[in-house]
C-alpha cells in the first residue's frame, strides 16, 4: 500500500509545507539573536501573503511577488521596531499588536483578492539531480523557493558564526550594554535585524499564497507564524536544527492529507490538530531542560535596552 511514489509525494508536500516556516523562522532567529522577541510573525506573514499574491496574480512574476512580500513584511515590522526600540514598549505586547494589525490590514486590503486563484510556481529543473533513480523524482518536483530556503539557512549559519556582522549581531543579543560600551549601535543593529525578520516572514507568507496553495484567503497562515516562533526555541537558535524541525512539522501537517490514505479511521479535524499538538509537545521536551535553554538563548533576549549615556 505504501509505495515509493507515495513516499516521494509525501516528502515533496512536506518540504513545500516546511518552506514558509523555514523562511519565517530564520527571520525570527536573527531577530532573537539580536536580542528581541517579535511575536508579530503571524501578522507579517499575512501582509507578505496578500501583497505577494496581489503582485503575483497581476504580473505573473514570482520574483517581484516575493520582493514585494518581503518589503511589506519589513515595513510592517518597523511598527514593532519603533514601539520596542524607541518607546520601550514590552516586546510581547508590541508583537501581539503587530499580529493584530497585520491580520486586520491584510484582510481589509486583501478583500479584492479574496478566494482568487493563481497559477503556481513550476518545479526547478536542476540538471543531473532529476536523473537520479527514485530521488530524481523528488528533486524534479521541488520549486526554486524550497532550495532557496535551504540556501538561506546555510548563509545565515555562516554569517552568524563566521563573519564580523554575525559577531556584532550576537554581541548585541548577548549583552546589549557591553555592545553599546564597545561603540556598536544597538538600536541600529536591532532595526536591521527586525527588518530582516519582517522581510523573511513576508517571503514565507508570499510563498504560502503564491506557490503552496496558490490563492489568498484572509487569515490563511492559520498559526504558522506562531509555529515559526516556536521553531526557533525548538532549534535552540541554530539554523540547521530549525530546518530539521520545519521538515518534521511539514510531515506532521501533511499527515492530515494522507492519514485517511493509510487507513487511519481518525476524523480529519483530529488530524488537523496534530501540528499544534506537536508544537506543544516539542516545546515541552525542549524547555524542560531549563539549563539548555539558558545556555543557548541570547543573554539580552526580551530585555529592554536603555543606554545610560
Amino acid at each position: 500500500m505504501i509505495d515509493g511514489a507515495l513516499i516521494v509525494a509525501m516528502l515533496v508536500a512536506a518540504m513545500r509545507t516546511a518552506t514558509p516556516l523555514i523562511f519565517a523562522a530564520l527571520g525570527e532567529l536573527i531577530v532573537e539573536k539580536a536580542g528581541c522577541v517579535n511575536l508579530g510573525v503571524e501578522g507579517m506573514m499575512l501582509v507578505g501573503a496578500v501583497t505577494g499574491f496581489a503582485v503575483g496574480y497581476t504580473t505573473g512574476n514570482f520574483a517581484l511577488a516575493f520582493a514585494v512580500g518581503a518589503i511589506a513584511g519589513a515595513v510592517l515590522s518597523m511598527i514593532y521596531g519603533v514601539l520596542v526600540l524607541h518607546l520601550h514598549v514590552n516586546q510581547y505586547a508590541a508583537g501581539l499588536a503587530l499580529t493584530i494589525v497585520g491580520g486586520g490590514a491584510s484582510a481589509f486590503w486583501g478583500q479584492a483578492w479574496q478566494g482568487l486563484n493563481m497559477r503556481g510556481m513550476g518545479p526547478l529543473e536542476i540538471p543531473g539531480l532529476s536523473a537520479l533513480p527514485t530521488l530524481g523524482d523528488l528533486f524534479s518536483r521541488l520549486d526554486a523557493m524550497v532550495y532557496l530556503a535551504l540556501l538561506a539557512a546555510a548563509a545565515i549559519a555562516y554569517v552568524l558564526t563566521r563573519t564580523r556582522l554575525g559577531l556584532i549581531i550576537r554581541a548585541v543579543g548577548e549583552n546589549h550594554d557591553s555592545a553599546h560600551a564597545l561603540g556598536v549601535s544597538v538600536i541600529g543593529v536591532r532595526y536591521g535585524a527586525i527588518a530582516f525578520g519582517g522581510a523573511m516572514a513576508g517571503i514565507g507568507g508570499a510563498y504560502l499564497s503564491c506557490v503552496m496553495t496558490p490563492l489568498w484567503i484572509e487569515g490563511m497562515t492559520a498559526g504558522r507564524g506562531w509555529i515559526a516562533v516556536a521553531l526557533v526555541v525548538f532549534a535552540t537558535w541554530r539554523p540547521a536544527r530549525l530546518v530539521l524541525g520545519a521538515w518534521l512539522f511539514g510531515l506532521v501537517t501533511i499527515m492530515q492529507l494522507h492519514g485517511q490514505g493509510f487507513g487511519l479511521a481518525v476524523p480529519s479535524q483530529i488530524l488537523a490538530m496534530l501540528p499544534y499538538l506537536v508544537t506543544i509537545l516539542v516545546l515541552v521536551l525542549i524547555s524542560r531542560d531549563a539549563t539548555r535553554i539558558r545556555l543557548n538563548a541570547p543573554g539580552s533576549l526580551g530585555k529592554p535596552f536603555q543606554p545610560t549615556a
Partner: peptide
Amino acid sequence: NANEILTSLM
C-alpha cells in the same frame, strides 16, 4: 518551563 504564550495560543 514551556513558554505559556506559545502553548496557550496553540
